[in-house]
Design a protein around this nucleic acid. Sequence first.
RNA 1: GGCCUUAUCGUCUAGCCUGGUCUAGGACGCAUCCCUUUCACGGAUGAAACCCGGGUUCAAAUCCCGGUAAGGUCACCA
Length: 473
Amino acid sequence: MASSTITRFPPSPTGPLHIGNVRTALFNYLFARKMGGEIILRFEDTDRKRSKREYEDHAYESLEWLGLTFDHIYRQSERTLIYRKYLEKMIEEGTAYVSKEADLEFEDAGGEDQDEESERERRDEVIRLKNPNKKVVFEDLVRGEIEVDTTELGDFVIAKSLEEPLYHFAVVTDDFEMGITHVIRGEDGIYNTPRQILIQEAIGAPRPIYCHIPFVFGPDKKKFSKRHGAISVLDYRDEGILPEALLNYLALLGWNPGTPQEIFTPEELIAAFDLGKVQKAGAVFDPEKLRWINQEHIKRMDEATFKKHAYAVLASRIAANPHWNEQRFDKLVPELKNRITVFKDLDLMWEGGEFDYLFALPSYDAKLLVPTPKDGKPPTLKKVTKHLHFVSDLLEKLEEASFTKEGVKEALAAYAEKEGRGNVLWPLRVALSGRERSPDPYTLCDILGKTEVLRRLQEALTLLKADTPKKED
RNA sequence: GGCCUUAUCGUCUAGCCUGGUCUAGGACGCAUCCCUUUCACGGAUGAAACCCGGGUUCAAAUCCCGGUAAGGUCACCA
């Protein structure tokens, strides 16, 4: 166990888990799994004022949806006894000391953080590290060697009291206690590293391997934040992005496999992942490419799984539809697979009436039955009527058993060829769907079945008759 | 501001370490065409980048120097 790889993902529950966090979690996850090691989830909630349980729940929900699993879960607020032990030891050994603070005015550091922070209490007694004031040199897996003079850090504060450790101290003792071998975190952690190393050395902890990965930016090249729209991973779930697609996309942000492969299952990611191929520069998050990757994952999905997803998205709409026809919809399902990029599209299609023809005789304007050829003039209503009649007769003669996509196609082939496919097929398609855009007429025939097809053809003919001016040509 | 980092098509990136094979490759997106008289899918083609300036060299996207831009970091936050 001692030599095995252990990584960690330490979110602080002070806001919803966002894309950047998840990418960091993913890299830790992939690396740990790749090495056959473990990954720890650790909630860094030492800031009691800002930490909220709801954000913790949000994190669980997000991580679970993504399928990112953890071997151990900790919460720093439950570990104060451990921190206290180390603090006492340090004070005893003289590597830290209790410091009486002069009553200086509050140095206001972060002005950006809007609200809440205004009434931060200031202690007149804190615990400081006895800084050896030296140069710290460490190796970063993506940046190489980094050297920092820690003198300017001074004797920085590591805890407000024995029961109230601060971030750096809690991180170091936890990483030590938990046997963390690799610290993979965002590049803003680079300058946390020297002071953490100082604490490590003070408590006699071994130094883990560091890997600072670049940021994820919004379209304006600014660090990803709320103003960039969908920032919470759950928003992507709600849009109908597949978790494996999001993972796939995120893995490719700042990392590349060194091969042209772009679509990965989670298992393939684990197999291919390599910290050595992590980018140095930040990457802009591109929702378009995410959607494309999602589409690719959908295409690769087996039909049963796709169907399950589709039904889940449409559940409430189906329940509310008195004419719901499962048989027909199921026949449309394979067609749907390469028509959507995210599952939300299904909902949008339904809303746009694109499924209406499945349930009821469509109502449409008779003129829609007339094809508009790219060159030449459109056929007369009379002609359209003639074609529809003929098609109807042809299909009438077709046996029930042959009333399939291929069967219909075959039955109509000769006639369509002779009269011009558009002239024959367009009116048929409109008669069946009532829409300007729809799947092809053969698929429609297959979905609706002989009886319904013939019925709709009759309906179209009736419409046409009513619309035809008596004295047309 | 001090210290540090980064910089290839609009975006994600390959190439850089070990200069030539780079008239810089792939992908998303975009455009055009084909397939199909619809839509979607699919196929083909195209437009599109080495941040700028010096230097080293027979030869630089690749090495060196300077500049510029962007970012990080300097808490009793994490």
